[in-house]
């Protein structure tokens, strides 16, 4: 009995030692010298590997940060500016201040606002439906509602509202990684500056048809009438191809334009209710 025990111990130890020696030699021979700062930088990154920076994963981004002389072009949409400041300290490099962004869905065409004109019966993919035809409603610009943006979101920050049949962004979770913007075949989603208390004013439509046609396809379409342009004191609004656009940087959230819009295509989100007096005037 004891023979077996002793033999086993000796055999196993011998094997272990042999393996350790081999491993040690191999590790020495194939050792890759890496900048230790890469690991330090990577630790500060969110490790979501979302690809929002344009590089394949956080490790690649960390490598790029360490390698680059000027890191002001390299931006991680997910990291907060404090995180990026820490990284800048590690690397001893200057970093550009970046405004936090948030994804915004520029379509408000709920089923009651635009009528259904056909039934789509193909693969449940917005890209496939979009390349086939204009979609179940008449609006060739509107949201198709099959949720490709929801699928690509790695942060569960966007979901389909079953009532409105439109995607909704949860601002707290959105990291502005750009995945949904790329995924949407109709370019409905835009990254806009994140404002205090998640307040938002934007044109919730991208229909470039002439007023009448746009109005016919959707009740809340931007008809390009230009009323908002006149209301804006900061020259934040431009009108191109029958479509108004509010520059997120120039806009001061003064709330002058939303009431002007005849089709209610400019929503105001997360604002306190307007005072009755203000409405009257």
């Amino acid at each position: 009995m004891s023979d077996i025990v002793i033999n086993s111990i000796i055999t196993v130890s011998a094997m272990g030692t042999a393996a350790a020696v081999i491993l040690f030699l191999v590790a020495r021979k194939f050792n890759v010298v890496e900048d230790p700062r890469i690991d330090l930088v990577e630790e500060e990154l969110p490790a979501a590997n979302c690809g929002g920076c344009g590089l394949p994963g956080c490790r690649a981004f960390a490598e790029a940060l360490v390698r680059a002389d000027d890191i002001s072009d390299l931006k991680c949409p997910v990291s907060s500016s404090e995180d990026m400041a820490k990284i800048a300290v590690i690397l001893g490099k200057e970093i550009a201040e970046q405004d936090p962004l948030v994804a915004v869905v520029r379509c408000a065409g709920t089923p009651d606002k635009r009528s259904k004109t056909s039934i789509y019966d193909g693969a449940p993919s917005c890209t496939i439906e979009s390349s086939l035809y204009t979609g179940e409603s008449n609006c060739p610009y509107g949201c198709l509602g099959l949720g490709e943006c929801v699928e690509v979101c790695k942060f569960d920050a966007i979901f389909m509202n079953p009532e409105t049949m439109l995607p909704e962004v949860i601002d707290d979770r959105c990291t502005a990684c750009n995945a949904c913007v790329v995924a949407c075949p109709r370019d409905i989603i835009e990254l806009r500056k994140k404002n205090k208390k998640d307040r938002k004013i934007f044109v919730a439509c991208i229909n470039e048809e002439k007023g009448g046609v746009a109005r016919k396809s959707c009740k809340v379409a931007c008809i390009g009438c230009g009323k908002c342009l006149k209301a804006c004191k900061f020259e934040a609004i431009t009108l191109e191809n029958n479509l108004a656009y509010i520059d997120p940087v120039k806009c001061r959230l003064c709330r002058k334009c939303p009431p002007e819009c005849p089709t209610n295509a400019i929503p105001e989100i997360n604002f306190p209710e307007r005072k009755a007096a203000a409405e009257a005037s």
């Binding site: 193909g122 693969a123 993919s125 890209t127 496939i128 390349s131």
Partner: peptide, 12 residues
């Protein structure tokens, strides 16, 4: 299964 729907997307 919508095989061709996806293959078409893959091709493009």
């Amino acid at each position: 299964r919508p095989l061709l729907d996806y293959i078409r997307l893959g091709k493009s």
